[in-house]
Design a binder for these strands. Structure first.
Lengths: 141, 141
DNA sequence: CTAGGTGCAAAAGGTTTGCGGTTAA
DNA sequence: TTAACCGCAAACCTTTTGCACCTAG
């Protein structure tokens, strides 16, 4: 009861030896409130309406800090601008080739990579990142 | 017997309405002869030793043409420079976090994405691209 | 003859960095 | 007081583009 979400967030940051500044809080707030995988520039524009003095470089810095603190994931698709995602569950991304939207795709509870890939002997897999393409349910109709 | 590899290649290109120029042939040759997923600049340097007059822009153009003709795959990892790969089999990539090398990982014969991901109803998956991280067999020892 | 290619240099696009000034533990 | 952080501008790196010239079909 005593620990609000704000405090938990503050702790997450401090755990990584970083401050929770108004800019960082607002950047995260923007990501949490509209989960459409915005680019750094899109985040910049949204935050700017709340903190008009913020600069793009600061948004990049804040995003980097949030990523390093484990609160945000950076999503790279092709060579386009990076997108940012506050979903901390293990998941992949699906890009609809018709509408361009990015969807989060959760993994199966006990997904076994070996069922999809022939991983050579001796290789130790620690993580994998997948981008899927196709059409979303709305555009498939 | 009559059709040499060269002719098959030429046909692949012409099928896409493109010419097989010395530069394009050499770029592909470089990729085929050393399959270490080089960047465009690395390809440029290797080709330059055979065709000293070639320019980086031409290497980019050749790579793009080869990718569009389906002879080469472009591999994007994070925001690093793109790497190029002449392996046309369906496969993913594994990056060793110790030595940095990129390995091709074949898919299982009849891999079912649904065994790994919870793909929402109505979504039509046409392709997926995966980058794995971990340690290769050599570095795991 | 002309569409497709090449090489060069310049530009574009996304991201990072250096720096002087500011702020919070 | 001092390390972390901000905003600004310049730099950086990869990739693309415009253009004049060239070449194969």
């Amino acid at each position: 009861m005593i620990h609000s979400a704000k405090n938990q967030l503050e702790e997450s940051m401090q755990h990584a030896g970083r401050r929770l500044t108004p800019q960082r809080r607002e950047v995260l707030e923007v990501l949490l409130s509209q989960r459409d995988h915005p680019t750094a520039v899109e985040v910049f524009l949204r935050v700017k309406s709340r903190i008009p003095s913020i600069s793009l470089a600061t948004v990049y810095n804040c995003l980097e800090t949030l990523v390093k603190s484990g609160l945000v994931r950076q999503v790279n698709v092709e060579r386009d601008a990076s997108r940012y995602c506050p979903n901390l569950q293990e998941h992949s991304h699906f890009i609809c080739e018709k509408c361009g939207k990015v969807f989060d795709i959760p993994l199966q509870p006990q997904a076994k990579p070996e069922s999809v890939w022939q991983i050579p002997k001796g290789f130790k897999l620690t993580s994998f990142e997948t981008t899927m393409r196709g059409t979303c349910s709305h555009c498939s109709k």
